Amino acid sequence: MDFLINLDVDDLDKAVAFYSAAFGLEPARRLGQDGCEMLGGPAPIWLLQKPAGSPASGTMGETRRYGRHWTPVHLDFVTEDIDDSVRRAQAAGAMLEQPVSTHAWGRLALMADPFGHGYCFLQFLGRGYDEIAG
């Protein structure tokens, strides 16, 4: 089984520019005017343009919004240099939501992209999660 990631955005060209600059991803192919596959990581990321206010699902009343929002699913990007990754993402338009923190397993940066999606940068130290695994 393969995985791919879909992210709804309200401005496809802005999203392509952000994900290229912040993460070094490259646009690979377009789905008409409303989708773009971004490659360069372990799984493709598809950016899908969906207007703000459009229904998020046919089974619930929620609509898409692109201000900062919470969701139980987010992306983690593992990096060798968290400080450089944070600087690069901020220069592209991301927001660092709190100072980088250090834990037994590594360093963590809580971020938000310009489309309201939260994500994290992780820099593993020592044995990474094995430092705290039972």
Rank of each mutant, 00 (worst) to 15 (best):
L122T: 13
A104S: 11
S20P: 03
D76H: 01
M38D: 02
G35Q: 11
G128L: 03
V86Y: 01
F121E: 10
Y129F: 14
T59I: 10
A17W: 07
G134C: 00
D83M: 06
D81H: 03
D10Y: 11
Q90K: 15
F121P: 06
F23I: 06
D84V: 08
L31W: 15
T102E: 15
V9M: 08
G24D: 09
A56F: 06
Q33L: 15
G116C: 07
L47K: 01
D76K: 02
A52Q: 06
F23K: 05
F23V: 10
Q123E: 15
E37Q: 14
G116K: 10
P44D: 01
G106C: 05
V73W: 01
D81I: 02
S54C: 04
G24T: 11
E62N: 01
D84F: 04
M1D: 06
F23L: 15
W70F: 06
D113F: 09
D11C: 12
P42I: 10
A89L: 10
R30G: 04
F23Q: 05
T71N: 02
L12M: 09
F77R: 00
T79R: 03
A56K: 11
A89Q: 07
R88F: 04
F3L: 14
M60L: 03
L39C: 11
L108H: 14
Y66G: 01
D113E: 12
D130F: 09
E26C: 06
F121H: 10
L31N: 11
T71R: 05
T71K: 00
P72R: 05
V9F: 07
E26A: 13
G41N: 02
D83T: 08
Y66A: 02
F18R: 09
L25S: 09
G134N: 05
G134H: 04
Q90C: 15
S85Y: 02
L48P: 00
L108N: 14
L122Y: 15
T63Q: 05
D81P: 02
L48W: 04
G116Y: 10
L96R: 09
L125W: 05
V86I: 12
L122A: 09
G35H: 07
E80L: 08
A91S: 14
P114V: 13
H117G: 08
P114M: 11
G53I: 03
G116I: 12
P44W: 04
A104P: 06
D13T: 12
I45K: 02
P99W: 12
D34R: 14
P72G: 04
S57T: 05
T63R: 08
A133N: 00
Y119F: 15
R65W: 00
A92N: 13
Y66H: 01
L12F: 05
D2Y: 12
G128C: 02
V78Y: 08
M95D: 15
D130G: 01
L96H: 11
